[in-house]
Design a protein around this nucleic acid. Structure first.
Lengths: 146, 146
DNA sequence: TTGCATCCGGTACCTGGGTACGGGCTTACC
DNA sequence: GGTAAGCCCGTACCCAGGTACCGGATGCAA
């Protein structure tokens, strides 16, 4: 038995702090690790990798709950099906996000090229800053009645 | 003098609530509007448009402080220069985000197609889920010493 | 066995972006 | 001029995602 890493080591290698590890544990993102006889956590080494995955997923717009879900789903009886559905949903969301970002990128590029002097009252004649176009769309992945 | 819109009207047209208007005022995103004799806010009509701009910018990854900054900058002595620099910086950030999203999109697509059964320990042989690649990059627009 | 770095659990606090509540004044309309 | 919306301000609260602090227990090495 190779004992495992203590929380400080994991935290350092993963680039986050110990409280965050415990926080993730509470949130169900990290399984409860083994313990030393005295009660100190001993993490399996691939925890560091897992934390990388979590951080990556999170940075890309998954909430912690979603990530937890995604991870749990992966390890269950129902192998692909559920994961696949979530993946499909998320792809749609991501596409919407990319579209928005692309639009805004274009707008910003025009700001740069056309030498706009303001986002709201640009004095350039040909300055179709598309913030407004974007702003009329609902945020990606949200639906609202009424 | 056409009096202007009251906060309730502005809020409704912009699709947010009155407290948020006041919150934006506190945060410097909205200039203090005029007041009725009795102290009620009277907004110039283009406030609604401005709020659209704010919401759009915000949804696309600008924080409220950045938006406030951006708006303030637009109205100043130094017309384009500053705005342009910010725009350029933001473009770089956006490109990074798009790249990440595109990567993750591809990963998810593979999950769907290849019938992966887990994000972390997929048992498919040819399953190069790139979360880890992404995870080793710094989040867009951040730098860290040490 | 002493001593210092680490870790423990619990609780409190922080930032960002809002939202809600309460008591009291204004506006608008009949 | 009565009365119901609507708005005022201040303060408190909410959620997500962490982070900090505390007193006490462990780990490990000399």
């Amino acid at each position: 038995m190779t004992a495992g890493l203590r929380s400080g080591e994991v935290a350092e290698r993963a680039g986050l702090n110990i409280q965050t590890l415990r926080y993730y544990e509470r949130r169900g993102l990290l399984a409860e690790p083994g313990r030393s006889p005295g009660g100190h956590r001993l993490y399996p080494p691939d925890t560091v990798t897992l934390l990388g995955v979590i951080k990556a997923a999170q940075r890309l717009g998954f909430t912690l709950d979603e990530v937890a879900d995604l991870l749990r789903t992966g390890g269950r009886r129902h192998p692909g099906r559920d994961l696949r559905r979530r993946a499909e949903d998320k792809i749609a969301e991501i596409d919407a996000k990319i579209a928005d970002l692309t639009t805004i990128r274009g707008a910003l590029a025009e700001v740069v090229e056309a030498r706009c002097d303001s986002l709201t009252d640009c004095t350039c004649a040909d300055c179709p800053i598309p913030f407004l176009t974007i702003s009329t769309r609902r945020p990606a992945g949200e639906g609202e009645p009424a």
